[in-house]
């Protein structure tokens, strides 16, 4: 090597430093939940949406708010309730009287016009309201009264839902679930973490996260992630994983054939590669490895596998099927 390697617009070291800075800020508030933080961060850097599922009180909302603070993003929280209307999300035209006495409609932007939207307990709203988020999540724009409004970049929806209180809820339709890059299970903290949580929340200490990055830098980090190369045999592995989630695929694992009604869409593969690229950068690598794929596979496929009645009856979870699939599907074609 006679010449020094050329530099990137953002070096991998800078990427890692910034990501670590965000994590550090979040850790000021959130105790434990390493995977949750990392996967939420991957979604944010990748510019995709995440669905956080966990029982109340585990810090889901707190995490998202902290992320927004650390990244200095415009944050909006929407508490989904059965009577929430689409206009409450996207906004509406209101009639306004000018000084000259003339009246005209003015668009009153809803909470979706933010960088980071927290859709709290998203499954409590009616499907009509839930679907109001569809266009925003996919197209990153909203249309009200035939008028289309672009959402400000970056735009992320981090939704939460409670898996226990299912009465009076409206499970998200598959089409909407597919728009979430990850579905992250928020686990209950262990005893040590609980002690730390108690200490932090029952005293006078009140941690205040500081903004360490801004929206532009988040976008730059996302663009850098997109450049991470992925070797052809790794891409093929992702493809094999995606098709293996379909029970009709001849080489699908037995568990998939037995318990899965419908497998992942191509969006699952896209999410897997994109998430892996971010994960590779977070680990200080310039390329995607099989390990990256395996690390995020569960979060990617968990909500994309539609289990059949037999699986529900036998208590088989999507995570079990994914674990089996990762074991059965070989890295070598």
């Amino acid at each position: 090597m006679t010449d020094a390697p050329p530099t990137l617009e953002m070096s991998i070291e800078e990427f890692s430093e910034r990501a670590q800075a965000i994590v550090d800020q979040v850790r000021k508030v959130i105790v434990g939940q390493t995977d949750l933080i990392r996967q939420a961060l991957i979604c944010v850097i990748a510019g995709r949406h995440a669905l956080l599922e966990g029982v109340p009180g585990l810090g889901k909302t707190m995490l998202i708010r902290t992320l927004a603070q650390a990244m200095n993003l415009k944050f909006a929280r929407i508490q989904f309730t059965p009577d929430l209307m689409p206009a409450d999300i996207v906004g509406t035209d209101i009639l306004e009287e000018r000084e000259d006495g003339r009246r005209e409609f003015r668009f009153q932007a809803g909470p979706v016009f933010a960088n980071l939207v927290l859709a709290d307990e998203i499954n409590r709203a009616t499907p009509k309201t839930q679907s109001a988020l569809l266009e925003a999540m996919q197209e990153k724009r909203v249309t009200v009264a035939n008028q289309t409004y672009e959402l400000e970049a970056p735009f992320f929806v981090l939704a939460t839902q409670n898996p226990l209180e299912m009465e009076g809820t409206y499970p998200l339709p598959e089409a909407q679930l597919d728009r979430f890059m990850f579905k992250v299970d928020v686990t209950f903290p262990n005893a040590n973490e609980l002690v730390e949580i108690f200490n932090r929340t029952t005293g006078s200490y009140a941690a205040e996260p500081e903004p360490v990055v801004d929206a532009e830098q988040i976008i730059a980090m996302g663009e850098l992630a997109l450049q991470v190369p992925i070797a052809s045999h790794v891409s093929e592995y992702v493809a094999r994983l995606v098709v293996s989630t379909h029970p009709e695929y001849p080489d699908a694992p037995d568990m998939v054939k037995q318990y899965v009604r419908y497998g992942s869409s191509p969006r699952g593969g896209q999410a897997l590669i994109l998430g892996s690229k971010v994960n590779a950068l977070l680990e200080g690598r310039y390329n995607v490895a099989f390990d990256d794929i395996r690390q995020i596979a569960a979060a990617v496929f968990r909500h994309r596998l539609l289990l059949n009645f037999e699986a529900q009856a036998e208590g088989i979870t999507a995570d079990q099927i994914i674990e089996d699939m990762l074991e059965k599907v070989g890295q070598e074609g």
Binding site: P229, A231, S232, V288
Partner: peptide
């Protein structure tokens, strides 16, 4: 971690 294969490609 697939560094060699990626680099060669």
């Amino acid at each position: 971690k697939e560094r060699m294969s990626t680099a060669l490609e």
